Simulated assay, not measured.
Amino acid sequence: MGYKIKKTKFFTLAIALFLTCILNGQIVPPPVPPPPPPGLPIDGGLFFLLVSGLIYGVRKIKK
């Protein structure tokens, strides 16, 4: 009877040590990148803004 208990304890210890190695060997995921800064670029609408300002100024001067 003593042999069975020793064998059971040995297998329990072996399985516990094996599972610990597996759980600690996981790869850490990379950190989440930061969100982009708020605000919108002016690049696309700059020409339209300039043209509309010129048209508005000419109309104001004519009146």
Rank of each mutant, 00 (worst) to 15 (best):
G45P: 02
T8Y: 09
K6N: 14
S52M: 07
I5M: 08
P41M: 05
P33W: 01
P38H: 00
L17F: 05
G57D: 12
A16G: 06
K63N: 09
L54C: 10
G57Q: 11
V28Y: 06
F47K: 07
F11K: 08
P29C: 02
Y3Q: 11
N24D: 12
V51P: 02
D43M: 07
K6H: 10
V28R: 09
T8E: 12
F10S: 07
Y3E: 04
K4F: 08
I22A: 01
P36V: 02
L46M: 14
R59H: 13
C21D: 07
R59C: 14
L19F: 07
G45K: 14
I22V: 11
F47G: 06
T12D: 14
G57S: 12
P31E: 06
F18Q: 01
I61W: 10
Q26E: 15
P29N: 06
P34F: 04
P33I: 02
L46Q: 13
T8F: 09
P33M: 04
I55G: 03
L13A: 09
Y56C: 10
T8D: 04
G57Y: 10
P29W: 01
I5F: 13
P41C: 05
L19P: 03
D43P: 00
I61H: 12
F18P: 02
P38F: 00
L13D: 11
V32N: 07
P35Y: 00
L40N: 12
Y3W: 01
F11L: 12
G45C: 13
L40S: 11
N24L: 14
P30Q: 03
P36N: 02
G45L: 15
V28T: 09
L13C: 02
G2T: 03
K9N: 13
G53D: 08
V51M: 15
K60W: 09
L49P: 03
F47N: 06
Y3T: 05
P34C: 00
P31Q: 01
S52L: 04
K62S: 10
G57M: 07
C21N: 13
I15L: 14
L40P: 04
G53W: 07
L13K: 05
G44K: 15
S52E: 08
C21A: 10
V51K: 08
P41N: 05
I22Q: 08
G2I: 07
P34E: 03
P38T: 00
G39C: 00
G53F: 08
L54Y: 07
A14D: 11
K4R: 08
K7F: 10
I22C: 00
I27M: 03
F47V: 15
Y3N: 04
K6F: 14
K9R: 15
K7L: 09
F10W: 11
K6C: 13
I22S: 04
L49N: 13
I61C: 04
S52F: 08
P35C: 00
K63T: 05
A16L: 07
F18Y: 10
I55F: 03
K4W: 08
Y56M: 11
G39M: 01
L49V: 14
V58T: 10
A14W: 05
L23H: 12
L19I: 10
G25M: 00
L17V: 02
I42C: 13
I61Q: 09
T12K: 15
K4Q: 06
F47Y: 12
P29K: 02
V32D: 10
V28H: 07
L17P: 04
P34S: 03
F48Y: 14
K4H: 05
Y56S: 11
